Amino acid sequence: MLIDLLVGIPVMLVCLMLQSLFVAFCFRPYARYMKRTGGHGSLWQNTLLLSTVMLLMLLGNFVQMAIWGALFVLLGEFDRFAVALYHSGVNFATLGYGDIVMSEEWRLLGPLEAANGILMFGVSTAVMTAAVSDIIRHHLAQVRER
């Protein structure tokens, strides 16, 4: 059990740092766009902007699932990366299908990944909500000016 924590917690920290990079990568171009347009972009520009933010945050989550999957392969839990990635996705998204179960030795990594995943999906949701709220706020300000 202690070994699971010693292996899992550093992976969680790597995922946290990675998620932070994806957040920064999303918001820097977003902030430049909003400064350049003053929040007065067209419907299609705003849609493209929000879609890009959402896709980048999802990509960040998928990369983290792949990191966990690679860890499972390195630990010898799975022979094929595709199976490890599937299992990782089920854990990360907290689906808990239970169709594939890890050995007792490494079983605690599943809940650790689930805790990591729910936190990272929460961060992704917060980023997307902030972007949508910001665009709505700019749009309402634009409507009030008319």
Rank of each mutant, 00 (worst) to 15 (best):
R80P: 04
M34L: 12
R80K: 15
G60I: 03
G41K: 09
T52R: 07
G76F: 04
R80M: 15
H40S: 03
A70R: 03
A66T: 15
G38H: 12
F78W: 13
R80Q: 14
V63R: 07
D79T: 04
S51C: 14
G76C: 10
G60D: 08
I67D: 02
Q45G: 07
L58R: 13
L48K: 11
T52K: 09
L56Y: 05
Q64V: 11
M57A: 09
F72M: 08
W44I: 01
A66N: 07
F78K: 08
M54G: 10
G76Q: 10
L55D: 03
E77V: 15
L50P: 00
L56R: 06
F78D: 12
W44L: 10
G60H: 07
L59E: 14
A82P: 00
F78V: 13
W68D: 00
Q64N: 09
F62N: 05
L56E: 07
F72Y: 08
V73K: 04
W68S: 00
L50Y: 10
L71M: 15
F62K: 01
S42C: 05
V53N: 02
A82Y: 07
R80S: 12
L74T: 06
A66E: 03
Q45E: 15
A70H: 06
N61Q: 08
A70V: 01
A66Y: 07
V73N: 04
S42A: 05
F62T: 06
L48A: 15
M57V: 09
G41R: 02
A82E: 07
L48Y: 04
D79P: 01
E77P: 09
V53T: 10
F78Q: 03
G69K: 01
T47V: 08
M54S: 07
G60T: 00
S42K: 06
G41W: 03
T52Y: 11
H40Y: 01
L74D: 06
A82K: 04
D79N: 12
W68V: 00
T52E: 13
L56I: 12
F62H: 05
K35R: 11
I67M: 10
G69C: 01
G76V: 06
L43G: 05
A82Q: 02
L59M: 14
L74H: 10
V83I: 09
L75P: 01
W68L: 03
S51A: 10
L71W: 13
Q45D: 05
V63A: 06
L50H: 07
L71C: 13
G76N: 06
Q45P: 10
L58E: 15
S42Y: 12
F78R: 06
G39Y: 14
F62C: 03
N61S: 12
T52A: 12
L74E: 09
T37D: 05
L75F: 08
G76Y: 04
T37R: 11
M54A: 15
Q45C: 09
G69P: 02
G39W: 08
